[in-house]
Simulated assay, not measured.
Amino acid sequence: MFPLSFPLRVLASATEGQKVLDPFSGRGTTLFAARLLGLECVGVDSSPVAAHLSRAKISWSTPDAVTDLAERALKTPAPCEAAPKGEFWDWAYAPQTLEDICRIRGHLLDSSNLGISPEDEDTVHLLRALLMGVLHGPRTKSLPSYFSNQMPRTYATKPAAAVRFWQKREMPPEEVRVIDLVRRRALFTLAELPPRVDSYVENGDSRDALERKENIGKKPFDWVVTSPPYFGMRSYVPDQWLRNWFIGGSPDVEYSERGQIGGKREVEFIEALSSVWQKAAAACHDSAKLVIRFGSLPSLKKDPAALIKESLRASEAWTISTIKSAGVAPSGRRQADQFSTTGGYVGEVDVWAKRAK
């Protein structure tokens, strides 16, 4: 996972009034770092799940406001479809828990019945992101931290595999009071938030967003700090299928690569990345800096430094200053373990570049 320490370290030398871009904003870590430093920021991501999480990182509200919105939603008939049916849903959530999740989901998709004002939009973003964060995860012996039966928290298990796991262990879902968990999580997560900054997040292709410019603003960027998808990594949508359902997607797993630049062919991947770097440069000051953290899937045996160097060379828009190792994730980290091989992990690289003259 993209660590907050990385963009904070990169942007430590930024000055007041500068503007930051992340064309692959993911969970909004670069945007949150910019916010902590009081810097204007823009993020773009092709994943609707990522875009919603990024928006939450630039939003401001209070624990009481977020909890009150959830309570209003639970007390008001939902304007959306009924809860999904099927074996997975029967085993994944207790009936009342799923009903409450679906009622809030319906109101977040169509908030007209709740009288949401423009001033409430940040509260909507934060409630949505909070619920996405606790939609699935491991069961605990104390107060529940997630709504679901036993699942990973970073990705959603596919339905058939999940049902087999629960049935084999005779593990029915436990009822979780949705409003209680929302209240506890809101109090913990939103106890103290940094001030707002001038910011914007778009769900879409960064190449299109940077070309249009009407939403990202006329002021050029001083920094581009990002971490593109690894070459060959195309499982973002199916891995996040439950969160994608919660924000309006299908209740079934969608194996879609729509809008992703993971690429099945190396030449296509480099070409797509090159286009992003090119359009980002066109939206930047002449003195702007580009900082990229990038890695590789062990199964593809690709050198991440070579791929990034080729994409930057092809863009003809940036000159590489330095490339250095970012190290590897410690053994035992859940996400790192998913990318490990018998021979160990593939190290990431940090690439610094400046606008080509």
Results as ranks from 00 to 15, higher is better:
Leu190Phe: 07
Glu316Pro: 09
Ser47Gly: 02
Pro118Cys: 00
Ser142Ala: 14
Leu39Val: 04
Gly332Glu: 05
Val124Arg: 06
Gly86Arg: 09
Ala129Thr: 01
Trp318Asp: 01
Asp350Ile: 15
Ile320Met: 02
Pro238Asp: 02
Ile308Gly: 08
Glu202Gly: 11
Phe269Ala: 11
Glu119Thr: 13
Arg334Tyr: 12
Glu257Asn: 05
Val346His: 03
Leu290Cys: 01
Gln338Ile: 04
Pro79Trp: 10
Pro138Val: 02
Ile261Ser: 00
Glu170Pro: 07
Arg355Thr: 00
Pro251His: 07
Lys289Tyr: 03
Ser250Arg: 00
Gln150Leu: 15
Val178Thr: 03
Pro48Tyr: 01
Tyr93Gln: 06
Ile101Arg: 07
Val351Ala: 02
Arg265Ser: 09
Ser287Glu: 11
Glu214Cys: 07
Met233Arg: 12
Ile104Pro: 01
Glu211Val: 09
Gly204His: 05
Ala160Phe: 13
Asp303Lys: 13
Ile179Gly: 04
Arg313Asp: 15
Leu187Thr: 15
Asp110His: 06
Tyr345Lys: 12
Glu16Leu: 14
Gly204Leu: 00
Val134Ile: 15
Asn244Gln: 05
Thr62Gln: 03
Ile270Phe: 07
Ser145Gln: 14
Phe221Lys: 02
Ser299Thr: 12
Asn149Pro: 01
Ile323Asp: 08
Gln167Tyr: 13
Arg243Cys: 04
Arg72Phe: 10
Gly217Tyr: 07
Gly86Glu: 09
Ala281Gln: 02
Leu127Phe: 05
Thr342Phe: 15
Asp239Trp: 02
Trp89His: 09
Met1Gln: 08
Lys264Ser: 11
Pro195Phe: 12
Ile261Gln: 00
Arg207Gln: 10
Pro330Tyr: 06
Val346Asn: 04
Arg164Lys: 14
Val124Glu: 11
Ser287Lys: 12
Trp166Gly: 06
Asn203His: 07
Gly232Ile: 00
Asp198Thr: 10
Leu130Lys: 01
Val267Pro: 05
Ile104Ala: 10
Ala326Glu: 02
Arg164Met: 13
His125Gly: 07
Tyr345Ala: 12
Ala156Tyr: 00
Gly17Leu: 11
Phe24Arg: 01
Ser315Ala: 04
Leu127His: 04
Glu271Asn: 14
Arg293Ile: 01
Tyr146Leu: 07
Thr30Glu: 02
Tyr255Phe: 06
Glu268Lys: 09
Val225Gln: 03
Lys354Pro: 08
Lys264Cys: 11
Pro298Gly: 10
Pro79Ile: 10
Glu257Ala: 08
Ile308Val: 14
Asn215Lys: 10
Glu174His: 13
Leu181Asn: 03
Glu310Met: 10
Asp350Val: 14
Ile216Thr: 09
Ala326Thr: 03
Phe294Cys: 06
Leu312Pro: 06
Pro298Glu: 11
Arg265Gly: 06
Ser54Trp: 02
Tyr230Thr: 01
Leu242Thr: 00
Glu202Arg: 12
Glu16Asp: 13
Asp120Ala: 03
Ala34Tyr: 04
Leu181Ile: 09
Ala65Gly: 06
Gly43Lys: 01
Glu266Thr: 15
Pro63Ser: 09
Ser296Gly: 09
Val237Ile: 13
Glu310Cys: 08
Gly38Val: 02
Leu193Asn: 00
Ser274Phe: 05
Trp60Glu: 10
Arg103Glu: 11
